[in-house]
Design a protein around this nucleic acid. Sequence first.
DNA 1: TAGATTGTTAATCGATTAACAATC
DNA 2: TAGATTGTTAATCGATTAACAATC
Lengths: 220, 220
Amino acid sequence: MKVLRIPEATVSRLSIYSRYLQRLERDGVVTVSSNEIAKGVGVSSAQVRKDLAYFGEFGTRGVGYNVKDLMHYILRILGLTRPWPVVLVGAGNLGTALCTYRGFKDRGFNIVGVFDNDLLKIGKRIQDLEVLPVERIPEVVAEHNVRIGIITVPQSETQGVADILVKAGVNALLTFGPTVVQVPEDVVVRNVDLSIKLEVLTFYLNLRETHPSAWFETNL
Amino acid sequence: MKVLRIPEATVSRLSIYSRYLQRLERDGVVTVSSNEIAKGVGVSSAQVRKDLAYFGEFGTRGVGYNVKDLMHYILRILGLTRPWPVVLVGAGNLGTALCTYRGFKDRGFNIVGVFDNDLLKIGKRIQDLEVLPVERIPEVVAEHNVRIGIITVPQSETQGVADILVKAGVNALLTFGPTVVQVPEDVVVRNVDLSIKLEVLTFYLNLRETHPSAWFETNL
DNA sequence: TAGATTGTTAATCGATTAACAATC
DNA sequence: TAGATTGTTAATCGATTAACAATC
């Protein structure tokens, strides 16, 4: 039984490599070395080769990698060679921001449904989508075979919305804020807590103020 | 020369512990053990004790930690015992979402200025703030002694805005999207790329589809 | 062939965990 | 004193890096 254990950091870096390769391709570059990729994105060349080695052999010794091919391989590893329909629950400011965020569409994420339970928001148009009541989640998820849900409702409602999405068949969730949601173990959840991000900054600023900088070293 | 090397994960966890402690305090809990904190936030109790041990001895052997005291110690470590003025550049949907996000104010982050260079947005009111032209960044940063800037402008303008902020005296930045900004080495930058987060999800979904699940194991 | 760069192994580094002496 | 839990050390685990044989 083959066991493949991939560091999450590797997956994130693959995503970064693929963007760099897209830029190289736009610039007409045909071949690239692990060393160039490494410099381009700020990691070591051994790291680049190791990350790729988890998934196969994509280069030519003595030559390097074909930009277009490698980009395509990585996109395939990340599952990005096909579009992913996504539903978004919570049509507040953050939800609206994510709906209009071009970075999603660029990578093949299509928001196919926006939901809210606020009567003032239902019926509103965001881009070319109408905000629908939460009750219609199962219908839209089934229709588009949606696997991914983004939850941008207030913290207190996040668990409830997660339950509805999971029941409807969604098996990957992106949540925001300090919430931790309980889901069946076959559902993947990732969370973005912007306040924690800011607190990493204040920790660092505070440390530098309270202690002479020469005395400390952090890996932040 | 004392060298203190703190894993960034430790800092993030401290932030999580402090929220959990706040909840306990609201519930009137006086004492808590590392084991209870661990269960409450989903890490090991050794991890909790180790994270705290970087900064001092906060507990009583045989008893545990005083909830209120420990919470305060952690907030002090994170630099959160004082308010932090923050400026936000980019008054689009994401910027507006962050301005109205209560999670920031709850942790002492006060947005004291919102800027944009779009004439249609300048003068608009977001909460109790008026959107100001980018030219006024130095003035506001100086007036409130701002150390932290959040950049929510389009990718192509991020570097330029970072330069303006750094020149104005800001030394911590939070950026969004796939951008990597160049800053002097005394400036701390953290980035949130929501698309990468989604790609971690698609990687996982894709892996499960393309390979029999029993054959693989990831640490995602 | 000489030069270059990959793929991979072994060494290193760093973070987490287990275990336990200290001590309330 | 007996029971509990901390603070800390040493062991373990896992990820990164250095180095080099393979090979274009």
